[in-house]
């Protein structure tokens, strides 16, 4: 498994008797937006949590840029280039937008060392400011930079979370329902940013999303989960045409 990007092979996540993810394999190459869709309870979030280390998989392996990260601790994975956002939006509400975004890079630099958590090197300051400036510009948040993140609208808060992982310089991003709570115009703008980031910066994105319009707009490749199993993979056009996908969503006999 030396392929760049994220590779998941035969992943199983089980809680007690419930099999949330059942033998799923998928790859998220750099430079692409890979979509992961499926009805409620299909196992998407469990798969995400296994990748980022919040849940320990029952079986299977997870590789990041050819390195086995299956059993690394939660904080180690971002240090290796795996960034994520949260469905419920985990922002630092009392900090300003700029500070939120800066913490994307600062966090990676602070890491696990007590000393590096205490003080920043002089050279790092410029690096952090530069990364934050760029991410704020990419997400169109410059005007809000000095407002507290808690005071922003949902749409802008989603963008702050995105800007934070962009500033983090991660090679691979896991985005968990980033458009929920956005209106049509906001999610379209969000999609445009995602496309630019993936294609322009060679970053791999795994997108869990319910908002199909956005999925079809930005994804280069789609995986469909149902009852924890991989039901379908292919391009968005193939997915729309697929009877299997239609059955999973509409419940007509498959």
């Amino acid at each position: 498994m030396s392929a760049p990007g994220l590779s998941i092979s035969s992943l199983v996540v089980r809680y007690g008797g419930l099999v949330a993810v059942d033998d799923v394999s998928l790859t998220v190459p750099p430079g692409r937006v890979t979509g992961l869709i499926g009805p409620n309870g299909a196992g998407k979030t469990s798969l995400f949590n296994a990748c980022s280390g919040l849940v320990r998989p029952t079986a299977g392996r997870i590789w990041l840029d050819g390195r086995d990260i299956t059993s690394l601790p939660f904080a180690r994975r971002p240090q290796l280039g795996l960034g994520r956002t949260f469905q419920r939006m985990e922002l630092f509400d009392s900090l300003s937008v700029r500070q939120n975004v800066e913490l994307g890079r600062e966090g990676a630099l602070a890491g696990s060392s007590a000393w590096r958590q205490l003080v920043a090197r002089r050279s790092e300051r410029a690096l952090i400011a530069e990364a934050a400036d760029e991410a704020l510009a990419t997400c169109g948040l410059r005007a809000y930079a000095d407002l507290p993140a808690g005071a922003l609208s949902t749409g802008n808060r989603r963008l702050v979370e995105l800007a934070r992982v962009l500033a983090g310089g991660f090679r691979l991003l896991l985005l968990d329902e980033p458009s929920s709570g956005l209106d049509d115009r906001e999610s379209e703008r969000f999609g445009a940013i995602l496309t630019e980031v993936a294609h322009g910066r060679d970053i791999g994105i795994l997108l869990v999303e319910h908002h199909m319009e956005l999925v079809l707009q930005v994804c280069d490749y789609l995986y469909v989960l149902d009852f924890g199993r991989l039901l379908f993979e292919g391009t968005p056009d193939e997915a729309v045409a697929s009877e299997v996908v239609r059955a999973a969503y509409l419940g007509t006999a498959a």
Partner: peptide
């Protein structure tokens, strides 16, 4: 840096960990 990490810790340890900070430290 510590101050920024602490304020972030107060708001969301989960998000801070997701940026690569070992919040136990």
């Amino acid at each position: 840096r510590l101050g920024r990490l602490l304020r972030a810790l107060a708001d969301s340890p989960l998000a801070l960990g997701a940026q690569g900070v070992d919040v136990n430290v």
